[in-house]
Design a protein around this nucleic acid. Sequence first.
DNA 1: GACACTACCTCGCAGTGCGAAGTAGCTTCT
DNA 2: AGAAGCTACTTCGCACTGCGAGGTAGTGTC
Lengths: 110, 110
Amino acid sequence: MDTTQLLKGVLDLAVLAVLKDEDGYGYDILRRLRTAGLEEVGDASVYGTLRRLFQAGLLTTYVVPSEEGPHRKYYGLNAAGRDQLQRAGKTWRTFASTMDGLLDERGVAA
Amino acid sequence: MDTTQLLKGVLDLAVLAVLKDEDGYGYDILRRLRTAGLEEVGDASVYGTLRRLFQAGLLTTYVVPSEEGPHRKYYGLNAAGRDQLQRAGKTWRTFASTMDGLLDERGVAA
DNA sequence: GACACTACCTCGCAGTGCGAAGTAGCTTCT
DNA sequence: AGAAGCTACTTCGCACTGCGAGGTAGTGTC
């Protein structure tokens, strides 16, 4: 099944969420998302999202040269990012329950 | 708040759902969606979605001239449409619970 | 030397929701 | 009559975002 379209607008939220408790770098964030169940996320999508969130002023970033491989560009939430995470989370929950209500009323896909 | 991006890929499902129990025409479908809670859906989005679903072979259509206003182009689900409704519903539920799990684990937006 | 994994980036495309604008019929109010 | 407003559908082109393809580099393994 194709979840590409479903991800639209939600990937931002997902990335903010996996960064809530611990800073992370792109490749690691990709793994976190896939581990969490979003297995079809492409790497380019994550890197693009990180750039977008950073440009929106929601993330801080710093590069850590690794002795065992390529350098790692870490990202972390700032105050605005945490705020946005809460707001986007609420928006998602509201939207999701609206959809669930719509489907439940009509007995779709129990 | 902007739910435009969240709608991506879900509008198809929503339209199929509101057509499950009763055929409807575009303008009426728009009202059903808004009544159900999707208040920010644009009319062009609905008409476009209907055309797409029809072209995908999921809908039947017939025009009913109205004596009290413009003609109405009715749409209804066919077998493939009902099948798609069930599958899209399941995909949505799976996806939504994945996202909920991701947020719950991190205590986002209770 | 070939392969595989980590880690990042750029480019351009694809899908889809939407705003703007237009057409047209009907009802209501002034 | 004229103006306004609702119903009802359509077309056009834009905006956003996820993704595939491709590239660069470092490290480790066979």
